[in-house]
């Protein structure tokens, strides 16, 4: 069965270059919250700390939180890109990722060439590849641009290809970072329709965003993250209300 299970997941980045020595002092005194030391006494930035949750088929999870809260790192960990420093990540099902703006696509290559590369990665046959190609072409609706280098695309155009491609290869677990939500209304409408098909087949969607409208529209469950930790995990309305209250109270001068 398709599913995601994250247990005690911690991820930290070692500081090798540049200002590591400056941080070392602070970390020693335990002043700065997100710096710590690992087993070999290296200074590390703790990007994620003891994350626990699981997802079942049909779940549409939203990740909400400020910049640097650890949303993207969590998505990358779920995609198997960052392997856990502590804890365990288990994902049953074919993973689709929409994380980077470039999506690992080569801007010098045409849209079509990038699609073929991705299909080869997933080991698709010639027939399947041409099906995917046709499908993405129809969704992205770029006409002759499909055969031009992607660096000549607007960001919206590459987004259409990326989204079309990630959804065409039928992921069972789709991981999306917030940038994808910067599309225009036309794109969002089409994207939503396409995703609806995926979610109906009892697949899992994880979406990170700070756009509250999109989250309340697309997600059934929210995880609120701050400083690499889970602050709150619950239904969309519940978490959004709490999140808005906190944001509002932070804006009052007395908090500063």
């Amino acid at each position: 069965m398709v599913g995601v299970e994250i247990s005690d997941l911690s991820i930290s980045f070692p500081l090798y270059h540049g200002d590591a020595r400056t941080f070392r002092k602070g970390a020693g005194k335990g002043v700065s919250g997100r710096f710590g030391r690992d087993g070999r006494r290296r200074v590390v930035v703790e990007a994620l700390k003891d994350i626990n949750f699981s997802l079942k088929p049909g779940d549409r999870l939203g990740l909400i939180g400020h910049n640097g809260a650890g949303k993207t790192t969590l998505l990358r960990a779920m995609a198997g890109i960052y392997e856990p420093v502590k804890g365990r990540v288990r994902v049953h099902g074919r993973i689709g990722t929409l994380l980077d703006t470039s999506l690992g696509m080569n801007p010098e290559l045409s849209g079509r060439e990038n699609i073929r590369i991705r299909c080869q990665l997933y080991g698709l046959s010639k027939q399947e590849t041409s099906d995917v190609e046709e499908d993405v072409e129809e969704f992205a609706d770029l006409g002759p641009f499909m055969d031009l280098p992607m660096k000549s695309f607007s960001s919206g155009m590459s987004m259409r290809i990326a989204f079309g491609l990630a959804t065409a290869i039928m992921p069972q677990v789709l991981l999306m970072d917030e940038w994808i939500m910067t599309g225009d209304a036309w794109f969002l409408g089409r994207a939503k329709k396409r995703l609806a098909g995926l979610v109906e087949q009892s697949d899992i969607l994880v979406l990170s965003s700070h756009n509250e409208v999109i989250l309340s529209e697309w997600c059934t469950r929210l995880i609120w993250m701050d400083q690499g930790q889970v602050i709150m995990d619950g239904s969309t309305d519940e978490v959004l209300t709490a999140y808005q209250q906190r944001s509002a109270s932070k804006e009052t001068p007395s908090e500063n």
Binding site: V2, P84, G87, R88, V89, H92, M170
Partner: peptide
């Protein structure tokens, strides 16, 4: 496609 219906498992630990 048939090749896509299997569910690969990604299981990562330190």
């Amino acid at each position: 496609s048939s090749s896509m219906t299997t569910e690969p498992l990604l299981d990562l630990q330190p």
